[in-house]
């Protein structure tokens, strides 16, 4: 019995379609709430080559929605664990792990190696980055975003169709993640599965691809709406001519006179402005601790308040800092505005 028998029976698939799936290359950027279910269905369907990109580690608070991970995975690399689990699900699929963030430097060359990009990210910077790199590499990408009980879904840059910049030419500083707003696990489950569906349709050349349309889903209201999109050729042309246009999201902190230590990685957003904000990522603390003032109170923060707590422990135990205070709840709690 062929493991793909039940889908090969569909006229949209058949043996020919199954071969297309086998030859396809899909990059999943962000193996989280959206990326986990998407990866499972794509691996299950026999998509032959899947790239799994995530620099994050599994956290206990991920498990309610990031269905590839188990309790014993907490603290381990998401992309590595995902590969292990998915290989058990389908040993015929080749997985490539990227334990690094997508950056302006690597985006185009990595995306170039794939046919389709599935966006499982949780921030505007990376969504614009995927968008721009896909324009330059001439690849379609399947977008999804969630906010509380709502989701947005579309396929961008498909056969010269509209791109993310055609819908949202201007970004917003309001970069709010599930960490801060809360989300039911089923919502990214629905959206991630819908993204995998679009990927399969694109590979198979079957059905109606959600290009030129933005689907809006409200899970709590049980409502759905599809908005027709138009291409803004000038937005696409700008990227084709000028290359990737990075989106930096800056912000002001509430107390301008206060010293702050940001222990997040350089790529993490939003970036606070101000002369009294130091950015020293966790990995550089030991080599750069002397830059931190030790004679006045310094507030230490990260995205959620967890890493900063660890940073304070290290700085206190190793270097005798007693003037550091953790910002519980992370950067969102100290942003002005």
């Amino acid at each position: 019995m062929n493991r793909y028998d039940r889908q090969i029976k569909l006229t949209e698939v058949g043996y020919k379609g199954q071969k297309k799936l086998h030859n396809a290359k899909v990059l999943i950027v962000g193996v989280g709430g959206l990326g986990c279910p998407a990866a499972m269905y794509l691996a299950g369907a026999g998509v032959g080559n899947i790239g799994l990109m995530d620099h994050d580690k599994v956290d206990l608070s991920n498990l309610h929605r990031q269905v590839l991970f188990q309790e014993s995975d907490v603290g381990r690399s998401k992309s590595v664990v995902a590969k292990e689990r998915l290989e058990k699900q389908n040993s015929e699929v080749k997985f490539q792990v990227y334990e690094e963030p997508l950056t302006i430097e690597n985006a185009e060359s990595i995306i170039q190696q794939y046919d389709i990009v599935l966006d499982g990210t949780d921030n505007f910077e990376t969504k614009y980055l995927i968008n721009d790199a896909c324009i330059l590499a001439d690849k379609p990408w399947v977008f999804a975003s969630i906010y509380k009980n709502e989701g947005q879904l579309s396929v961008f840059n498909y056969k010269n169709g509209p791109t993310y910049r055609c819908v949202f030419p201007k970004s917003t500083r309001q970069n709010i993640s599930c960490e801060t707003t809360g989300v039911l696990g089923v919502l990214p489950g629905i959206l991630g599965t819908a993204q995998a569906t679009e990927v399969l349709k694109i590979i198979l050349g079957a059905g109606e691809v959600l290009s030129g349309k933005l689907k809006l889903i409200n899970m709590m209201q049980a409502s759905e709406q599809t908005i027709k999109l138009n291409k803004r050729p000038e937005e696409v042309e700008k990227i084709r001519k000028g290359g990737i246009a990075p989106v930096y999201i800056d912000c002001d902190l509430k107390d301008k006179e206060q010293w702050y230590l940001d222990v997040r990685e350089a790529f993490e957003q939003p970036k606070p402005k101000g002369k009294k904000v130091l950015n020293i990522p966790m990995g550089d603390l030991i080599s750069r601790y002397q830059e931190i003032p030790n004679n006045q109170e310094v507030f230490v923060f990260c995205q959620s308040g967890k890493r900063s707590k660890n940073a304070i422990e290290i700085l206190k135990n190793e270097f005798g800092f007693h003037n550091l205070k953790n910002v519980e709840g992370g950067i969102e709690t100290i942003i002005d505005g």
């Binding site: 949780d122 505007f124 809006l216």
Partner: peptide
């Protein structure tokens, strides 16, 4: 008329 803000959760 629909008012659509961008959002980025995942």
């Amino acid at each position: 008329v629909a008012l659509l803000p961008p959002f980025a959760g995942g």
